[in-house]
Design a protein around this nucleic acid. Structure first.
Length: 286
DNA sequence: ACGGCTA
């Protein structure tokens, strides 16, 4: 059903001119790549279509080469040392996450923007040597090539890379300081390096969320509050199972010190492991 | 013939 954005209400893009269209089939999914243009500029629309589902992300024009780089990264890296990535482009953030289930491995690409709901596409790795991702990467490469032809010479300067910061590698923000030669003192065991703690009276409103991935599990850290006060909820999510502990903020420091204690006494065994991976996620909506 | 994803 392509025509569901008929009125172009709120910038649906229905009237935008198509510069380039490509399709890719991976397993039973169909991916549509549409390079489009409107008065505000160019963008790449990537849609994932299943028999029952369609999901779309919109990549700003200057993000196409970043997408290409990231897919190259996931295609070329060994399975055991790929990590989640975040890509900030303009007002959007794209999250790249590896997942695996009985169907196989997949790459989840999720677009978060302030206004729109989060949208996600999931690209199967494919059966042999990530060929699903590789095919996806090849399409991106073709589009990136073609897109460069659309750039006029005088536009290249304004599109150049100094504005395009935002590729962040989240590796190594786990409990263990990566390869530092000295043992991590307790003050370095800081899970929350990138988010400033808000004043206590704002915590309830300013839901701060983090997630770490350890093997197949994910642990979500969410600040919240109820009539009993403020708390940190730590949720373990593995597959469809989820369980949580609710830690009153008064217990946070003892909890932290206790974890630090176990980090200390086990560090001989866990030094060098880099399983944990921290990133910021959108505040949950509630 | 899938169907994943704290939307």
């Amino acid at each position: 059903m392509e025509g569901n954005s008929g009125g172009n209400a709120g910038g649906g893009g229905g009237n935008d001119v198509e510069l380039l269209c490509k399709t890719l089939q991976v397993e039973h999914k169909l991916f549509y790549f549409d390079l489009k243009e409107n008065p505000r500029g160019r963008y790449l629309k990537i849609s994932e279509k299943t028999s029952a589902t369609r999901s779309t992300i919109i990549v700003p024009f200057n993000g196409i080469s970043w997408f290409l780089d990231l897919f190259n990264y996931y295609v070329n890296s060994d399975e055991q040392d790929v990590f989640s990535k975040e890509l900030q482009l303009d007002t959007k953030v794209f999250y790249f996450d590896i997942g695996e289930n009985r169907r196989g491995r997949f790459l989840k690409v999720s677009e978060a923007s302030v206004s729109r709901n989060r949208s996600t596409i999931i690209v199967p790795a494919g059966t042999a040597q990530d060929e699903g991702w590789a095919a996806f990467r090849n399409i991106l490469a073709e589009i990136n090539e073609a897109a460069n032809l659309f750039i006029l010479p005088n536009q290249q300067n304004s599109e150049s890379s100094e504005r395009l910061v935002g590729l962040s590698d989240d590796v190594g923000a786990g409990f263990i300081a990566g390869h530092s030669s000295h043992p991590a003192p307790a003050s370095d065991l800081n899970v929350d390096r990138s988010v400033d703690m808000p004043p206590t009276d704002e915590i309830g409103n300013l839901a701060v969320s983090k997630v770490i991935r350890v093997d197949q599990k994910r642990f979500f850290f969410d600040l919240g509050s109820n009539n009993r006060g403020h708390f940190l909820r730590i949720s373990e999510v593995a597959g469809s199972d989820r369980s949580s502990i609710i830690l009153p903020l008064s217990g946070l420091k003892p909890f932290y010190e206790m974890v630090g204690h176990f980090v200390e006494i086990t560090k001989d065994r866990i030094e060098g492991l880099t399983g944990a991976n921290v990133r910021t996620v959108d505040p949950p909506q509630r």
